[in-house]
Design a protein around this nucleic acid. Sequence first.
RNA 1: GGAGAGGUGGCAGAGUGGCCGAAUGCACCGCACUCGAAAUGCGGCAUGGGGGUGACUCCAUCGGGGGUUCGAAUCCCUCCCUCUCCGCCA
Length: 446
Amino acid sequence: MFDIKWIRNNAEAFDAAMLRRKGDFATAADLLNIDDRRRDIIVRLNDAQEKRNAMSKQIGQAKAQKDEAKASELMAEVARLKDIIPVAEADERLVEQELHVALSVLPNLVFDDVPQGNDESDNVEYFGRNGTEETVANVRASKPEFSFAPKEHFEIGEANDGMDFEVATKISGSRFVVLKGQIARLERALGQFMLDLHTTEHGYTEVQPPLLVRDEALFGTNQLPKFEEDLFFAGHGDGRLALIPTAEVPLTNLVRESILSEEELPLRFSALTPCFRSEAGSAGRDTRGMLRQHQFNKVEMVSITLPNASFDEHERMLGCAEAVLKKLGLHYRVMDLCTGDIGFGAKRTYDLEVWLPGQDTYREISSVSICGDFQARRMNTQYRPGGGEKLKGGLPFVHTLNGSGTAVGRCLIAVLENYQQEDGSVLIPDVLKSYMGGLTSIGGRS
RNA sequence: GGAGAGGUGGCAGAGUGGCCGAAUGCACCGCACUCGAAAUGCGGCAUGGGGGUGACUCCAUCGGGGGUUCGAAUCCCUCCCUCUCCGCCA
């Protein structure tokens, strides 16, 4: 969400930056036109209100002095303002709303060095601030070699009686799956492992948030008003609640409408939750297997930081997500999303793409974004700087970041495909064994 | 689901139609005292939006929205939220 004053003072920069985004957006001139009308109305309204207030005060004084004649005279005079004030108030509401709507559908500005591009094919592989292809190769698992043709995850899952798409369809329709037995346990183990990792080693506070949220929370994290069709809603009384598409929504909104103190920042939250997405725009894509589901589990990380700390926090958070894949021994790459692929609220996004040998391709398993003050403005989350210095222009907004660490369902796919054996069994990665009751492998011919 | 109470500044908490953007306390900031600190004293301290080069000034905001009134934190309607009791329930 933009500050119209900022746009007024940076009109050219705003237009230039918005042109980098895919899609057509209002220009600074369009927006300032609305704002000019808004200010004209405010001047008119304030003027009338000032007169009314002054006269009302005189009426009170006249009445106190029992001067009923003067009071009546003034009341007749102020009555004329009753025609103009309600009209001006209505005008102001309309134009305020118009400006709010116009601003709320604008995507965030990306950083200058985000790669320009149209779609995911223009994303650029990222090796860290000072990294190279060689430095990352040393700390990441390499692509596994197979002496046989590796299977896809659903073949492994179904062969082990651990994944049932048909019965899920009977119960809930397409894009659902039923996990069973050791596969179900492996999914649970992965989620537990990730959440434990972030809370014990990465400084995140474990949170169990609501999974049903109000429209206001969704506005705060940009799902509304533009992406309503991606959401599931549950009716509630005369209203509705949305099923969270990601725990980013409740975790980020933990600080909505509040003023934090500088000392308590950064705040770091992590949660393991189901996520619900309608996948309205993706009919026909990834229909086989459990890659793209209406419901999946995900471990989410959210950081609330001071403005000058968010840039480094982004790299730190990327490292937290990468740690999951490193500890699981999964091969992956990091992509710096181009302007055509980056999300609405992000200033920069890194995607982690894990190697899936069964599909012979990399697939997104995590997305780590820095939003600057974009969401903080939508949520109205500010902080009070320490030291108590005088503040010109109001309290500053916090910065928000979010990242998956990681999508659990997709990570299950990755473990199954990367750790599969020729006999159909799947080895359990070392870090998961304690979560699997000591099992070293599951499935296979018995 | 039924009955009741309540939502006021960073926090606590007074305020039932004009003298209230709002007492008081805490927290915070400045100054004085002190070698320094504590204690004490004095002063400052809400947010948003306009106008003005500026000193400054105006408007709005007491959970949200609407209404009554010349005038609303205060009265009315409505929505949201919180709490208490009863009922039901994982």
